[in-house]
Amino acid sequence: MSQDAALERDLWAPPAKAAAQWLALQEALEACGPVACQTSDAEAWWPDHKDIHDMPARTAVAACRRCPAAAPCLAYALANDHRYGIWGGTLPAERRGLNPALAG
């Protein structure tokens, strides 16, 4: 089975269109070790639209922007069209205006 077919078959795997970015993100995370989104309160990274300006979300965005894996994280979020959560130091509204080809 090809890698694309395997990714499409596994519901928890990233879509084939974002597989390369997912692998790059995984490599970056392995290289830098645990990062803030893996070790802190998950709710801060998935704020409701009404909570994006609250302290937990602002703190998460700031930590994310300092993360050594921010660039591949953003590239993955754009390639996968993530419409929720904080990815690569950006909120959903910020990502809507970005071109996936320019990330990473």
Rank of each mutant, 00 (worst) to 15 (best):
A6Q: 03
L7C: 01
L7R: 03
L7H: 04
E8M: 03
E8P: 00
E8C: 01
E8K: 00
E8W: 00
R9F: 00
D10I: 04
L11T: 07
W12D: 15
W12I: 05
W12Q: 12
W12G: 14
W12N: 12
W12A: 14
W12V: 07
A13G: 04
P14D: 07
P14G: 01
P14M: 09
P14K: 06
P15K: 11
P15V: 05
P15C: 01
A16D: 10
A16E: 13
A16V: 10
A16L: 02
A16F: 01
K17T: 11
K17H: 09
A18N: 05
A18S: 10
A18T: 08
A19K: 07
A19I: 04
A19H: 06
A19M: 08
A19F: 01
A20K: 14
A20Q: 12
A20V: 02
Q21W: 03
Q21M: 05
Q21T: 01
W22T: 02
W22P: 00
W22L: 05
W22I: 00
L23I: 09
L23V: 10
L23E: 11
A24S: 10
A24N: 09
L25N: 03
L25S: 08
L25I: 06
L25Y: 06
Q26M: 10
Q26C: 12
Q26T: 12
Q26V: 07
E27M: 11
E27W: 02
A28G: 07
A28K: 07
A28S: 10
A28W: 01
A28C: 08
A28P: 01
L29G: 02
L29K: 15
L29C: 13
L29Q: 09
L29D: 00
E30G: 04
E30F: 05
A31R: 15
A31S: 11
C32P: 00
C32M: 07
G33P: 09
G33T: 04
P34D: 08
P34A: 13
P34R: 14
P34W: 10
P34V: 07
P34T: 09
V35N: 01
A36V: 11
A36F: 10
A36S: 13
C37P: 03
C37G: 06
C37V: 14
C37Y: 11
C37S: 14
C37M: 14
Q38L: 11
Q38E: 15
Q38M: 15
Q38Y: 08
T39H: 03
T39K: 11
T39S: 15
S40A: 12
S40K: 11
D41L: 11
D41K: 08
D41M: 11
D41Y: 07
D41A: 15
A42K: 06
A42L: 12
A42V: 08
A42D: 15
E43G: 15
E43M: 12
A44Y: 01
A44I: 10
W45N: 03
W45C: 08
W45Y: 11
W46A: 14
W46P: 02
P47Y: 05
P47L: 06
P47S: 06
D48L: 09
D48Y: 02
D48G: 11
H49E: 15
K50S: 10
K50G: 10
K50I: 00
D51P: 04
D51C: 08
I52N: 02
I52F: 06
I52P: 00
I52V: 13
H53P: 02
H53T: 13
